[in-house]
Amino acid sequence: MSAPVIRQMRVEDIDRVMAVEAASFGTPWTKDIFYKEILENPYAIYFIMQEGKQIVGYCGLWVIFDEAQITNIAILPQCRGKKYGQTLFHFVLNQAVALGAATLSLEVRVSNITAQNMYKKFGLTPGGIRRNYYTDNGEDALVMWVKL
């Protein structure tokens, strides 16, 4: 199979993105949230990673002035371990720089050591804790950030 392709998410991708979302998160976003992000949020840009016709991952980015925020990133569970997350994250970091961002931040579950380790590879460092951030189980979020 050929290497995955990354491109900007379109409205017609949302149904297939929902499969990634549902497989990845205990409290998945709704279709309506994705529609609003793509169609109404002037600060948002979303990217999908596609392998053939299958969407295997996606990542959301907000850029407000010179600050970028990763809203979410997910790879289908059966596609993890192939460095797809790293590839997608690296692509989105480059997009943030191209859009004029000087810093980038994100929240990650304190229990998600795998993701934290990946973010550290890109220079992100812990910046604080958001207590009870995740509504599904009240887990804290670790805030990580990097100067771009």
Rank of each mutant, 00 (worst) to 15 (best):
N72C: 06
T125I: 15
Q8A: 15
I55C: 00
K121V: 06
D32V: 10
L88T: 07
Q54S: 13
L88E: 02
A23P: 04
G60H: 01
W29H: 09
I45S: 09
M18E: 05
R109D: 00
P77V: 04
G123Q: 06
L148Y: 04
A101I: 11
G127P: 00
G128C: 08
Q50W: 10
M18H: 09
T71L: 14
W62H: 14
Y119S: 11
N137W: 02
R109Y: 04
A101R: 08
A102D: 13
L76W: 02
A141E: 03
E51N: 14
S24P: 01
R7T: 00
N137F: 00
N132E: 09
I38F: 05
I64M: 11
I14R: 01
E12L: 12
E37D: 08
F122H: 04
T87D: 14
R80E: 11
V97K: 13
P126A: 14
Y46D: 00
N41V: 03
P42A: 02
G123T: 07
S105A: 14
N112A: 04
I45G: 01
K36H: 13
E107R: 06
A115C: 09
M118V: 12
I70R: 02
E107K: 07
S2I: 14
I14V: 14
T103G: 11
G100N: 09
E12V: 06
M118R: 06
F34Y: 14
E139A: 06
